[in-house]
Design a protein around this nucleic acid. Structure first.
Length: 395
DNA sequence: AATTCGTGGAC
DNA sequence: TGTCCAAGAAT
């Protein structure tokens, strides 16, 4: 058999049949994929590693197994479930897309790349990937793996992102009419296991004879990338306001926390309170919490768009080029500056946070008093989880 | 076209 | 230790 007669797609698909990864969102060979799982996994995997996604995907589908259940979910629950995964617009768009499917498509998920592309959170890559993997449509699927593999195969020297159109054209040229979904996943498995960014394993590569970069001797020179900008450093303050779980009742009627509201209401009605969403045993636990002097911390909901948009959070002041101190503190009170600071790196800037601590009570706009011993259930982005950890450690 | 969106792991 | 990077999208 003349290897030259086999197309790149043929060789890659043969390699895939022998070496494909077993992933929870992948149907076994010959079995139709579940579009919901394909879509969810593709969104989770945007700029996120398989190792990070795998357990989060399992937990997610156990809680929301299909489009209908997700469309009916509470926004706060969905955002909390996404906490720690980053790029939180993905979670907002996930719910919006699930609702759009229910409202505009009669509950049926679109099956073509063009129709998928109209859903929020489905861009060029994800629409093509879902169309190919879930529905068998021939679509040109270009992610960072494909960019790397293709730029090496054809030794595309122009730097990214200017080379995108050439890479796409080259990917189109090797995408088969049949098994386009397997081909896309094969490219990604190859990029993950063989055609890696550094130290590619060319000796194991089924496409080695076809690879111009390998022939040139320095495959890891591709893809060439434009120089990146320097990251600015910014400063901010996190405000930690704490109060006893149950002190006095008077202010609570006006500005109750969910837990307190239920307790007060139950006292008025002479009935047991409903179980708080974050508790499991109703009045017993509420009373126990009060008796043992449990404490609560003030949380807020960040604005729906922008950095950490829509997420539950600790109150913060502005980000600035210099430490902003107590600017925009949520309450006028005596603050104690904590010794340690929290360092956090975002994609486009690094942040140093000071920690201001105070005792407080009463009303805060959009505020929510949260039981300290259940803070892990609040769904805080990593930045705030770090701050809570730093304060906890020192108590 | 260039920015703005998180986070954790590999090296 | 800092740098790079990951199944990108929206604006």
């Amino acid at each position: 058999m003349d290897a030259k007669r086999l197309s790149i797609a043929d060789k890659l698909l043969a390699w895939y049949d022998a070496h494909r990864r077993d992933l929870p969102w992948r149907a076994p060979p010959g079995v139709a994929a579940d579009p919901y799982r394909v879509w969810l996994s593709e969104v989770m995997l945007q700029q996120t590693t398989v190792a990070t996604v795998r357990p989060r995907f399992e937990a997610w589908v156990a809680r929301w197994p299909d489009f209908a259940s997700l469309a009916a979910a509470e926004d706060a629950d969905v955002m909390a479930a996404w906490a720690g995964l980053g790029y939180y617009a993905r979670a907002r768009n996930l719910v919006a897309a699930a609702k759009a499917v229910a409202a505009d498509h009669g509950g049926a998920f679109p099956r073509t790349e063009a129709a998928l592309r109209t859903l929020p959170g489905l861009g060029a890559y994800t629409a093509a990937a879902v169309a190919a993997i879930a529905f068998g449509e021939r679509a040109v699927v270009v992610d960072a793996n494909v960019e790397r593999v293709v730029s090496r195969l054809f030794a595309i020297a122009r730097p990214l992102p200017a080379s995108r159109s050439a890479i796409r054209a080259a990917a189109d040229g090797i995408t088969p009419d049949e098994r386009a979904g397997d081909f896309a996943q094969a490219m990604m498995d190859l990029g993950s296991a063989i055609c890696t960014p550094k130290l590619p394993r060319c000796l194991l590569c089924p496409l080695q004879p076809d690879c111009r970069a390998q022939a040139q001797g320095e495959p890891d020179r591709y893809p060439v990338k434009a120089a990146k900008k320097a990251k600015p450093h910014r400063y901010g303050t996190i405000f930690w306001v704490e109060r006893p779980f149950l002190s006095i009742v008077a202010p609570l009627r006006v500005h109750p926390s969910p837990v307190r509201a239920e307790l007060v209401e139950a006292q008025e009605l002479g009935a047991p309170p409903a179980t708080h969403p974050s508790t499991s045993s109703g009045r017993t636990e509420l009373v126990d919490r009060a008796v043992r002097g449990a404490r609560e911390v003030l949380l807020v909901r960040r604005p729906p768009k922008g950095l950490l948009g829509g997420m539950r959070a600790l109150p913060t002041g502005p980000w600035a080029d210099e430490p902003p101190g107590l600017a925009k503190a949520p309450v006028a009170t005596d603050w104690t500056m904590h010794n340690a600071t929290v360092e956090h790196g975002f994609t486009h800037f690094d942040l140093t946070l000071a920690l201001a601590v105070a005792n407080g009570d009463g009303h805060h706009p959009d505020g929510e008093w949260w039981p300290l011993d259940r803070l892990d259930e609040a769904g805080l982005p990593t930045l705030f989880a770090k701050a809570a950890r730093a304060l906890r450690r020192d108590e």
